[in-house]
Design a protein around this nucleic acid. Structure first.
Length: 553
DNA sequence: AGTCTATGTGACC
DNA sequence: TGGTCACCCTAGAC
């Protein structure tokens, strides 16, 4: 017989036991030949595993009944939640800053209000432009916006709005109360959060992940969206009618090697161009008026690598910022685009999830990388060899979650405030919650961390309103609207704050979200008032569609 | 309460 | 360069 050998390790500790003495006891090891197990017919599960192993022709398996760390498989410690606090495996580098020798608990970057900034090597020379800037413009730059206008309290929400996790959010450019949301299934949501129940979902525009969307700058009833199905859609928001602006997979599925997916997208309003990039490193330009691709695709990142982000400079739209899986963010001049013609290449240690010019002057660059660092370059006119600052922040989870993207606060006059969801949880009154962080990127200080006891899921997608003190969050399949505490009270008295439960959430989450709660915080903002009515009318179609008003050219 | 899984990236050979 | 495999705090369905 060629059965593999099975080692059974037995744990002598009882379930409840946690004394160190007992933990250090040597576990009893019993070695059993497979034939013995099968002959005795008492192997049960073990027998099955062995047969499985035989099929896969794998050699000795160890089945351990001893308590070991699930991360490093060694005994003596265990990684995992102790209550609402996660204990790291001490054998691994710090989960937060990735440096060996300590765990997240003792990481010097953990208290972000005090630490978190790694100063970049100080530059000794300033370019003439830097000098002019420092002397003439710097003094006029206003202070960071005050913390009290940060939207820090959930005002209303739709639980399980989408049927898959939310991937992107966008506020309507002119109608203040309309939020657009995309999901992993390719569905497009339109939600009027001033009326809360008025939501529309278009499910037939894309067949998989809706990665990015932008409004047509000349007509805010029209939305462009880039999807992993390889198309850019152009959708009339009023009717839901959509046509593909571009289709990179006209012949359908020919295998994973040829299926093209679209990720990064932005619009150059001056040239009337939609810029979009795929998972093979290529950039495409589409003319919005003729709906035709202009020119050939241009390789802007490593061949075969995903380009996840594109951003046109707000003041000089011909300046393009791209980022992707080749660990680079790159700056381009759209007027002189060809492979390898980038003006600057900004290296990172891991995948770059997002890269944005600052929203007003377009002078700064903010990137989010999977190495758990935000990077800031203070001036694109200066030396871009190294970032001005690196800010350690937990956002490195890449699978099963929408990638985290730090975004500038468009209303912060100092262009230093940024928002990003946090991956690692915080013990908040006994619950493990994942905050949404507001970070002053000029200092690395944590300005605010938003938590809501009823949001237990991670919130990787966060969008600040371009005009109002409002933030939208996408957390798993749900959407949330945040407002500053004081304003929130004015707009929506605490008792009236609304939450809608969709689909199965109605049954499953009723208790959790609408009273009968064991939550002792006394927080009743997810009150059940109007609940029945709300859920019943959740599919209300708006007769007048406020998001479809057109802008005159 | 336990199990399963969709799924992306990077290390390693 | 391409295939294979492992993976540290998921979320939700069954």
């Amino acid at each position: 017989m060629t059965f593999p050998r099975v080692v059974i390790e037995r744990d002598t500790d009882s379930e409840e036991s946690s004394s160190e003495e007992e933990e250090e006891e040597v576990a009893e090891e019993v070695e059993v030949e497979v034939e013995e197990i099968t002959e005795k017919d008492n192997g049960g599960e073990i027998e099955e595993k062995v047969l499985d192993a035989k099929k896969k022709e794998k050699a000795p398996i160890t089945i351990s009944l001893k308590k070991v760390c699930k991360v490093c498989k060694r005994s003596g410690h265990e990684a995992g939640f102790k209550g609402a606090t996660y204990i790291d495996c001490p054998m691994k580098p710090c989960f937060l800053c990735k440096m060996p020798g300590h765990t997240t608990m003792s990481c010097p970057h953990r208290v972000a209000t005090e630490h978190g900034v790694i100063p970049a090597p100080r530059r000794n020379t300033l370019s003439p432009l830097d000098y002019v800037f420092e002397r003439q413009l710097s003094p006029r730059i206003p202070k960071i916006k005050p913390a009290f206008v940060i939207p820090d309290q959930v005002d209303c929400a739709v639980i399980r709005y989408h049927s898959r996790r939310v991937t992107c959010l966008e506020f309507h450019p002119t109608n203040n109360n309309i939020l657009l949301s995309g999901d992993k299934k390719g569905q497009l949501g339109i939600w009027d959060y001033s009326k809360v129940y008025e939501k529309t979902v278009y499910g037939n525009i894309h067949s998989c992940i809706l990665n990015n969307m932008r409004f047509n700058p000349a007509n805010d009833g029209t939305l462009y969206a880039a999807s992993s199905d390889g198309t850019i859609s152009c959708t009339d928001l009023e009717t839901g009618m959509s046509f593909p602006l571009m289709d990179l997979n006209p012949n359908g599925w020919q295998g994973p090697g040829s299926w093209r997916m679209l990720y990064g997208m932005d619009i150059n309003p001056e040239k009337g161009l939609v810029l979009v990039a795929d998972n093979f490193g290529y950039l495409y330009l589409v003319d919005m008026r003729s709906n035709n691709k202009t020119g050939e695709a241009i390789l802007i990142h490593k061949k075969g690598s995903k380009v996840v982000g594109l951003h046109c400079n707000p003041l000089q739209p011909e300046l393009l910022l791209s980022c992707g899986n080749d660990h680079f963010a790159r700056v381009w001049d759209v007027r002189r685009l060809e492979a390898g013609s980038s003006l600057y290449n900004l290296p990172h240690r891991r995948v770059v999830n997002a890269a944005y010019f600052s929203p007003q002057s377009g002078r700064k660059i903010l990137t989010t990388s999977q190495d758990n660092r935000l990077r800031v370059w203070d001036s694109i006119f200066g030396n871009l060899d190294s970032p001005s600052r690196e800010i350690v922040h937990s956002h490195d989870f890449n699978r099963h979650l929408t990638p985290f993207r730090a975004e500038w606060d468009p209303k912060d006059p100092s262009e230093s405030l940024a928002v990003i969801g946090r991956y690692i949880s915080e013990n908040y009154n006994g619950a493990a919650l994942h905050p949404i962080d507001f970070i002053d990127t000029s200092t690395g200080h944590l300005v605010a961390e938003l938590m809501e006891p009823n949001i237990t899921t991670i919130s990787p997608v966060n969008k600040l309103h371009p005009r109002d003190d409002v933030m939208a969050s996408g957390s798993s399949r749900s959407l949330f609207i945040w407002r500053p505490k004081e304003k929130s009270e004015l707009v929506q008295p605490k008792a009236k704050r609304k939450i809608i439960l969709c689909g199965k959430a109605k049954k499953k989450l009723n208790r959790k979200f609408v009273g009968e709660s064991d939550d002792d915080s006394g927080d009743d903002r997810f009150s059940s008032k109007g609940k029945t009515k709300n859920t019943k009318s959740k599919k209300t179609e708006s007769k007048s569609t406020p998001w479809s008003r057109k802008v005159k050219r």
